[in-house]
Design a protein around this nucleic acid. Structure first.
Lengths: 114, 114
DNA sequence: CTTAACTGCAACCGGTCGGTTGCGCGACCT
DNA sequence: AGGTCGCGCAACCGACCGGTTGCAGTTAAG
């Protein structure tokens, strides 16, 4: 069912690796939708540059596209974010388990009276 | 205070954007420490390539370095992972708040009779 | 002491990335 | 109708990235 999770987490992390893209995601999380031209007016770059970033976010399925007349509106689609968070949570959990096991083994050892 | 969180989250996401680096982090979460040569023996690349990746992880402060004799051991340092997870959680939370506000406004409107 | 193991540093190479410019097309407005 | 607004596509450019090779330095082992 959701076997291709690993393929997806890669594109998500790659998408989030760019500060501009993260800023767009932050904006999208607060507001509703955004167009390439509208964003470019607020950012120090060209409309096409923004369009490329939005295309990358779309590639990671982090945004959904909705064309209205001659405007293309982008909306946040936060599900892939959860997958990235899930990866981090998995790694952290394994680390914590490891620490816990170490702590228990030390405790056992310490309780053994020489 | 932890003001420089924004500067740090960038290097963390950049570090996690590479699949090899994520794989190393996963390994490090399970095991204890790792050396560049030891990792290179398990990966389809040169020792120096692995060393570069480890250096990148070190730049993101995702690993701590400990030199023992002629070997350099790398250990996971999961704190920056929490910062990345925190960023995602923040974005998701704002999105959820937005949805909740929309839901409430719709409900209010719908509950108003006539 | 000589040799082998493990490392770091620097140079180099092809490919991708972020950004720009330029063009053409559809949609909206008088 | 004609003009212009927003968009997508393609080409181009400099910079960075992932990877390699080669070399020099330090530590362990013979």
């Amino acid at each position: 069912m959701r076997a291709p999770a690993h393929r997806q987490v890669d594109s998500v992390f790659v998408a989030l690796a760019d500060p501009t893209r993260r800023r767009v995601v932050e904006t999208l999380a607060r507001g509703g939708t955004v167009t390439a031209s509208g964003l470019a007016a607020q950012l120090p770059m060209t409309r096409q540059a923004v369009a490329k970033h939005l295309s990358a976010l779309r590639g990671a399925e982090l945004v959904s596209v909705m064309r209205i007349g001659r405007e293309t509106h982008y909306k946040l689609r936060p599900q892939p974010l959860d997958e990235a968070a899930h990866w981090i949570q998995m790694v952290s959990a394994e680390w914590d388990d490891r620490l816990e096991a170490l702590r228990r083994s030390l405790e056992k050892r310490g309780s053994r009276p020489r």
